[in-house]
Amino acid sequence: MSSLSDSERSNARLGLWLFGLYTLLYLGFVLISAFSASTMETKVVAGLNLAIVYGFALIIIALVMALAYGVLCRPEPAGGQAAPPTAAADTEAADPQDGEDGGREQ
């Protein structure tokens, strides 16, 4: 398991971008709550206050981002093990990791 395949690498990069984005949103919520709690009482949409709108939004955005990640991720080589970037699917049987993995699945 020394190196990652291209698709695993790009998936990991995508994951980190989405993670950074969500962290900023979460940080915004926590900082407003901690340092300006009264802002959370402001009515923003349809008579709902910021606390409820932001809170629900954090949950819904988490789901949307998770789904987006699921759709955008590139498929890994079969078995999901660390095939070298250049390895095609048919050379994988030679990878000792796959042997172990196959045994585990029996």
Partner: peptide, 30 residues
Amino acid sequence: YDGFLYSIGFLAGWIVALFVIAEPMKRLGK
């Protein structure tokens, strides 16, 4: 509302699990 802060934090933790931890954990461990 305060109890709901736990809900928000508990769910946000899954973002870390999905985007950072899930796939490497599966790759590395037994």
